[in-house]
Design a protein around this nucleic acid. Structure first.
Lengths: 211, 211
DNA sequence: ACATACCGACCGACCACTCGGTCGGTAGTG
DNA sequence: CACTACCGACCGAGTGGTCGGTCGGTATGT
């Protein structure tokens, strides 16, 4: 998406353009997270960015394009965990990575709210974020399924553990805890609760003496 | 809400009013479930009900009032499980009731969609359904907390089981499975997955020989 | 000259909601 | 029975406001 700087890097015009774009994405992330996509107006994003509506639409041809940029940015920030260049964690280590992800998300309510909002809004196929949400779930599902299967192969996880159910339930716990965390931010620890859930999984499906 | 019939009960005018009202609530439930509250227009509800917009607003003074009627109806249908007149189930039986609730919900995608949608939309305090969502979660939390505590007292559940975490995680699993079920209706069984989760809980926190 | 960043003015569509009325049925009175 | 008074159900035609998006222009830097 980012094209090479054709002028000197410090050019005021280009810099200003990039800055406006980035700021608009940040503002849109926050507003989409709290008011949803349909509940947020382009004018509101523009105002909070410090642009006129036309100025904002100069950078993003449509509201949907702005949403796409927001989702792209979210993927970029989270992608290191799942689709990063490093090898993905396997076996129980994958669940530890998810715990770490939960801990990190606890410091970024904007991104959590954005996801919870959009996941619910985009259930209907006509929503501009529908395919993104589908792919997001498919990605996590596939990643976690592979990790659990690998855990079986290397003797960490019991061979009779129901992979699909474990995977879906784990994802469900993450999503559900996020929802509750948004409703009572101070009184819920996503990290602790998820860690306890993983402990329960280990107690049930760990092969004794393997970790 | 219902005032005493000043005329004979079978008056055709009154009956027609009740019917229109009920149909409007049913239609609104469906539309709110698929398009959300903000994404649904009063005109759309009116058209699908078979009324003009003015006719619909004759029965419900505002869109928010229509939403309130929808939520009231949902509570009425689900309330038997949690706040019914019969004594609430305690100990592990409470989780069996939740399994039954999941099974019943599997046959009513409208109500599931309505809840998932509104729970996400109503995170922001200004949303007309915000307090309803808060109370809904508080109700389930309290109900399940009491059940788990009672299970400890009667020796079904281990005394060192972390009540709060178990309760929050259980609610999270329900919510998360609903979300996934909405995204892939045919490929997920909320009932089976939740049942497996309960099995994992039992394996970890059941007191041996008690059930 | 040329591209980029940006704005003011505007547009048609849609929004929730209001207003003034019609219509059919009911109750009371004679 | 007829007549009046009244009711709830419902509609057509608006209200002002907001929506996403377009267009023509200006200012600026290369």
């Amino acid at each position: 998406m980012s094209f090479p700087p054709r002028y000197r890097a410090k050019s005021r015009v280009d810099l200003s353009g990039e800055e406006s774009r980035a700021k608009a994405v940040a503002v849109a992330t926050e507003l989409f997270a709290t008011a949803g996509f349909k509940g947020t107006s382009v004018a509101a994003v523009a105002a909070k960015t410090g642009l006129s509506q036309s100025g904002l639409l100069h950078h993003f041809p449509s509201k949907a394009a702005l949403l796409a940029a927001v989702l792209e940015e979210r993927d970029r920030q989270d992608g290191d965990f799942l689709t990063g260049t490093t090898a993905p964690p396997l076996g129980w280590a994958a669940f530890d990575s998810l715990t770490a992800l939960a801990a990190r998300n606890s410091t970024r309510p904007h991104l959590v709210g954005l996801f919870v909002r959009l996941a619910a809004e985009a259930v209907e196929p006509s929503h501009p974020a529908h395919t993104w949400v589908q792919q997001h779930y498919a990605g996590i599902r596939g990643w976690l399924t592979e990790a659990v299967q690998a855990g079986k192969d290397r003797g960490e996880i019991a061979a009779d553990a129901p992979v699909g159910t474990v995977v879906r339930t784990t994802i469900a716990v993450i999503d559900g805890l996020q929802q509750q965390w948004l409703l009572q931010p101070g009184e819920v620890s996503m990290t602790a609760d998820f860690e306890a859930f993983v402990g329960t999984l280990r107690a049930r499906w760990s092969i004794v003496g393997s970790g």
